[in-house]
Design a protein around this nucleic acid. Structure first.
Lengths: 233, 233
DNA sequence: CGCTGTTAGAGTCTAAAAGACCCTTACTAG
DNA sequence: CTAGTAAGGGTCTTTTAGACTCTAACAGCG
């Protein structure tokens, strides 16, 4: 009747985690970057051979967020800079065979990090808005994760998770533009960022460029990232 | 390595649902309404005797949202007008005995509905911001649900879930005021609501009051409720 | 009947924010 | 030195939130 009432049927519902990982990667030859995500090819039924989100079962000795990170690292060698719970999917007909409840996370990785990701026969990157038919309900899950990313980038400071510690405002703007798929006015973007306490000018400049050297910024670690869930530090 | 990979350990992690239910109830004698929620007294270890959120295990034949609604109805006889997933809690030390992952929902019920709720020795209503120490991590869960409600009432149309089909703008404003715990300017509130497509004047007036008869409004069912999760209609 | 108290609801003014657009600055490449 | 280009400062307009004011429409009461 309440939490922690183990029932004999519990074993009939299996519990898994999956992660939607976004990275910003330059289109081949094209200038602008676009959102890409790594998928894993399934090597067993159901959906044998189809691409799916990285994930797997939860170990009884680890928290679910750790489980998501572990499966992600095991299959793709990625360790994201941002990881947040997305949703728990528990429809009865998600899987044609057994009953699976999936707790899905979404994550952001830096571009350099994404380069290092294991890629092979069974792991590949896909453009986030042009996916093949995936296993289970994973297409819908990616859609929802995309919606969350696009909504959240407008009011939260998550965009910096795509970048390194230090960045220019133009780089940050390019991240926003790639996520939102529209151009932003450089002057207004600058004004907004500088009025926010989340972004701090380091005082340094980036030298070596072809043009006027831009200021370098870093994120203010003491600014709370709203809505990281109830368990945030 | 992926979804639906049943492992022998799966049975060691049990899966449950719980629900944070909010209703708006008038304080005894006091004028203003306040947020209240029903809790259930635990009748077994761990936390025997403590109050906890209504919930229970997931039946393999039902979806998780249905499971939440079913447990809620079984213990409190409530059927909410609004039900949305809140978060999945899966820390390893949530329960001192076994390992439980809880998928928690939050719900809103109308005041009349709340009156009908089963109340007894083991089911009681508590003021949402003045709770006793609850079982498990349920205090933190309620805190998070309160935060979500207060955040969401500002940009979504969920407030009407506390009211009936037809309501006056003053009633709707009282709901917002109770949730946000601050007074709102009647004129500005009216302007905001009338500029939004979510609220529609019926043309009718509420007669029989002591003063100028207020207009009656209803919610526009065709307006999407944003962020009801990926599985919304 | 008209006065009064009270709530409904319209209107005004200001401050803050978002967006469109322009202009100056500072570098590199030739 | 000049041209090209991105950085970054500024202005103007539109939109929006909020504080505040004023009129409308009832019931109850003398």
């Amino acid at each position: 009747m309440n939490d922690s009432t183990p029932s004999p049927d519990a074993a009939l519902v299996s519990l898994a985690v999956s992660t939607v990982v976004f990275a910003l990667r330059a289109d081949s030859e094209g200038e602008s970057a676009s959102l890409r995500l790594p998928l894993v090819r399934r090597i067993r039924e159901p959906f044998n051979g189809r691409w799916a989100l990285p994930g797997g079962p939860i170990d009884p000795t680890e928290g679910i967020e750790r489980a998501a990170g572990r499966h992600l690292f095991d299959t793709t060698a990625l360790s994201p800079t941002y990881l947040e719970q997305l949703y728990a999917f528990g429809g009865i007909d998600r899987s044609p065979s057994d009953r699976v409840v999936s707790i899905v996370y979404w994550a952001l990785v830096r571009s350099e990090e994404a380069e290092l990701a294991a890629v092979g026969e069974n792991v590949r990157w896909f453009a986030a808005d042009d996916l093949p038919p995936l296993a289970f309900d994973h297409n819908a899950i990616v859609e929802y994760a995309l919606w969350r990313l696009r909504t959240k980038v407008e009011y939260s400071r998550i965009a910096h998770a795509f970048l390194g510690e230090i960045f220019t405002l133009t780089e940050l703007r390019h991240v926003h533009e790639a996520v939102l798929r529209r151009a932003l006015d450089p002057a207004n973007f600058r004004r907004q960022m500088e009025s926010s306490p989340a972004v701090i000018a380091t005082g340094e400049h980036l030298s070596g460029g072809r043009h006027r050297p831009p200021r370098l910024y870093r994120y203010n670690g003491s600014v709370e990232l709203t809505d990281r869930g109830p368990l945030s530090p």
